[in-house]
Simulated scan of single mutants.
Amino acid sequence: MNFVDEVEIFLKAGDGGDGMSSFRREKFVEFGGPDGGNGGNGGDIIFKADHSINTLMFYRNHKNIHAVNGKNGAKARRTGESARPLYLKVPLGTQIINAENTVVADLLSKDDAFLACQGGHGGAGNACLKNSINKAPKESINGAPGEEGYFFLKLKVLADVGLLGLPNAGKSSFLASFSKAKPKIADYPFTTLTPNLGVVEIGDDGFVVADIPGLIKGAHQGLGLGIQFLKHLERCKMFVHIVDSSKHNLVAQYLEVRNELSVYNPDLLKRPEIVIFNKTDLVTNEEIQDKIHHFEEKTNIQVYQNSKIYKKNSILHIIKDILDSLKSDDTQEIYDPIS
């Protein structure tokens, strides 16, 4: 599986360069005095959100990262060169959690940045330590060590709409039918092993849809593809619940997924949701109408139909209208099981 959405890494900022202890030695210049330069600052380590990166794969093989140290001071009051900051690019939606399990940064937008470890300050040369009492100091000060620590990176997919459903309900086909996303599609469970994103364009506007791998009973305990993908739903503003209408016990299918959301985070149940019966072309019209009537009667939820031959424009506009109504409220609290 190439998708990496959680990784722990160790970071060490650069140490400051040492100050220099030296004295001016020049012909015909008596008592040249101290001329040792200061050390340069060590390099900072800064996380930066980059929209061109989709996973944390790089950090699976680079779990110990060190910034460059500052250069030492030199004679003739020359200051050592300070190291450049080390920028670590991460996908949009990356949370940075410190060793105390505190979320210290949530990089949601392009170019969002967070200073994780500050480089050490350069040490003082003996020229800098000269004063009215000690005019010829022999000592110098070494550079300060750079900050270091372990950090846990967690990626949560950023999308407006999350597709819910049991494995093989047809979520990937639904996503591929109205966006340029190319998810793997096949007639067996767990075809989708990583979240897929698709952009839906409606006129000059649009929204992003995430196809989350199918949930099964016990997903919140790690069964199936487990809790690792449940957290991606926390970023979504609303859900589209896909139900395979060719199966039996459709109410049970629906409630099974809803129960997993409830156990993981009850607040997810408060977000807007529409239910779509998929694969309606595989059953007779009379049968699908009976299933819709039964489902709506038991759940009091309106059902929309979808199949390979069904026009999706109306469904997409319904989703867009719901998202528009949510734009005035961007203060949804994001649940995090770690914090």
Rank of each mutant, 00 (worst) to 15 (best):
residue 204 D to M: 05
residue 205 D to V: 08
residue 205 D to E: 14
residue 206 G to H: 08
residue 207 F to D: 08
residue 207 F to M: 11
residue 207 F to A: 11
residue 207 F to L: 08
residue 207 F to I: 09
residue 208 V to Q: 15
residue 208 V to F: 14
residue 209 V to F: 11
residue 210 A to S: 06
residue 210 A to W: 05
residue 211 D to A: 09
residue 213 P to Q: 15
residue 214 G to E: 11
residue 214 G to I: 05
residue 215 L to M: 10
residue 215 L to S: 09
residue 215 L to F: 11
residue 215 L to A: 10
residue 216 I to E: 14
residue 217 K to D: 12
residue 217 K to Y: 15
residue 218 G to I: 05
residue 218 G to C: 04
residue 218 G to H: 06
residue 218 G to P: 06
residue 219 A to K: 04
residue 220 H to P: 11
residue 220 H to R: 12
residue 221 Q to D: 15
residue 221 Q to A: 14
residue 222 G to D: 06
residue 223 L to C: 15
residue 223 L to H: 13
residue 225 L to H: 13
residue 227 I to R: 13
residue 227 I to C: 12
residue 227 I to W: 15
residue 228 Q to G: 15
residue 231 K to Q: 14
residue 233 L to M: 13
residue 233 L to A: 13
residue 233 L to H: 08
residue 233 L to Y: 10
residue 237 K to Y: 15
residue 239 F to L: 11
residue 241 H to G: 04
residue 241 H to R: 06
residue 241 H to D: 05
residue 242 I to H: 08
residue 243 V to A: 07
residue 244 D to K: 05
residue 244 D to M: 07
residue 244 D to C: 04
residue 244 D to H: 07
residue 245 S to A: 11
residue 246 S to I: 04
residue 249 N to Q: 13
residue 250 L to E: 12
residue 250 L to N: 10
residue 251 V to R: 07
residue 253 Q to K: 06
residue 253 Q to A: 06
residue 254 Y to G: 03
residue 254 Y to I: 04
residue 254 Y to E: 06
residue 255 L to P: 09
residue 255 L to D: 12
residue 258 R to L: 11
residue 258 R to V: 07
residue 259 N to E: 15
residue 260 E to G: 00
residue 261 L to P: 01
residue 261 L to K: 03
residue 262 S to M: 14
residue 262 S to C: 13
residue 262 S to V: 09
residue 262 S to T: 14
residue 265 N to V: 08
residue 265 N to Y: 07
residue 267 D to A: 12
residue 268 L to I: 00
residue 270 K to V: 00
residue 272 P to E: 02
residue 273 E to I: 06
residue 273 E to P: 01
residue 274 I to S: 01
residue 275 V to S: 01
residue 277 F to C: 00
residue 279 K to R: 01
residue 279 K to A: 00
residue 279 K to F: 03
residue 281 D to S: 01
residue 282 L to C: 01
residue 284 T to W: 02
residue 286 E to A: 02
residue 286 E to Q: 03
residue 287 E to R: 06
residue 288 I to H: 03
residue 291 K to L: 00
residue 292 I to Y: 05
residue 293 H to S: 13
residue 293 H to R: 14
residue 294 H to W: 05
residue 294 H to K: 12
residue 295 F to P: 05
residue 295 F to Y: 04
residue 296 E to A: 07
residue 296 E to M: 11
residue 297 E to L: 08
residue 298 K to P: 00
residue 298 K to H: 04
residue 299 T to S: 02
residue 299 T to G: 00
residue 299 T to V: 01
residue 300 N to T: 10
residue 300 N to L: 10
residue 301 I to T: 12
residue 301 I to L: 10
residue 306 N to H: 15
residue 306 N to Q: 10
residue 307 S to P: 05
residue 307 S to E: 08
residue 307 S to M: 05
residue 309 I to Y: 12
